[in-house]
Amino acid sequence: MSAIIVVDAFWGDSGKGKVAAFLAQKHQAAYSVRAGIGTNAGHSILFAAGSEIRTRQLPCGVLHPETQLRVGSGVARAEFALRKARQARDERSLADYTADVARELNESCLRGETIVVEGSQGTHLSLALSDDYPDCTSDNCTAAAFADDVGLNWRHIEEVCLVVKALPSRVGTGPLPLQLTPAEEDRRAIAEYGVTTGRRRRKASGISWPHLETAVLLNGPTQLALTFCDHLDPDVAGARHRSALTAPVQRLIDELETRFNIPVSLCDCGVHFENLIEIA
């Protein structure tokens, strides 16, 4: 296998880190590499045993012991590390931690190894592609942009996994279709807070199909990962097997596959890594 790119369909906070970690472990990835915007995008993984992984700059694909972690050369770095340097190689304190990541990744793919590229934020926060400017980020957040961030030859891209949050959310300003009130979020016990900022996220009552259609058009996914299904239907919370999926979740899976003719390969049914179910 070659490269798998993990990208968010909406406005971020969809559990991309969990999905990327699962794929890196499943395929025994040679490299897990972070693309996208820098440290303002936090990813986290919580395990049933109580341990947790939280990252801001590094990718989450650390579960397979032989997977090497990389950060693409096109990714914005932390200001405290770079100070006035424009690239990591220009900062002396980082000299021992720099490498030709693009060469490493492309040569790995040529050897038939798998790499997982973990994007940040979400498609509809893309600078040049979002309808919500200036309520967007400083770069594009699509599969093509992430490949460019890490210097990946497009011929090595074998899979694009589009992460679809069952009830999309958004932090800060900018429109959110089908937005719930905070009171309704609290009543349904589905309030969320950002990993990095701690800010409360605004949540929608369902998927905006026009926005998802655009995300599919821009990213060309080969598979979908449906996340936060326990917010769609609390009865599915804690599920670890496909047989435990509830009717509302299965209906959404069926609708996604019917609309886009793309398989839903993963279904996330709870807060723990173990609640990510492989269904295709």
Rank of each mutant, 00 (worst) to 15 (best):
R83K: 13
F47N: 03
S265K: 08
R240E: 15
H43I: 00
K16Y: 15
S73N: 09
A9R: 01
R111S: 10
L218E: 04
V249W: 08
G206N: 03
G194V: 07
E113N: 02
L63S: 01
G50C: 04
T227L: 12
S14H: 05
V6Q: 05
R188H: 15
S51F: 15
E66S: 13
S138M: 06
S130K: 06
R202F: 01
E104M: 01
E107A: 09
L218R: 07
A41R: 03
A183G: 09
K203I: 11
F228W: 07
D233A: 00
I157V: 15
A88E: 10
Q223D: 09
L105S: 08
D135F: 03
A20E: 13
P175W: 06
R70V: 02
F146A: 04
A35F: 05
A166C: 10
A215T: 03
D148V: 12
P221T: 01
N261P: 10
S32C: 03
D149C: 13
L105A: 10
T98G: 06
A102W: 14
D235K: 07
S73G: 06
P263F: 08
I5W: 08
V7G: 02
S208C: 13
N40Q: 14
R240Q: 12
R54A: 12
R70K: 12
F80G: 00
T197R: 11
R92E: 14
D186C: 09
N106E: 10
M1F: 10
E185M: 14
S120K: 00
S14V: 05
C136W: 09
K84E: 15
G50W: 08
R199P: 10
R77D: 06
L110T: 06
L217N: 11
Y97S: 10
C161E: 07
A247K: 14
V164P: 04
V6M: 06
V163P: 02
D90V: 00
D90C: 04
A215M: 01
Q28A: 14
E158R: 05
S126K: 04
G12Y: 09
G220V: 11
L212N: 01
F47A: 03
L167A: 04
D233W: 06
F146H: 05
G17W: 08
T214R: 14
D254P: 00
F228P: 01
L256P: 05
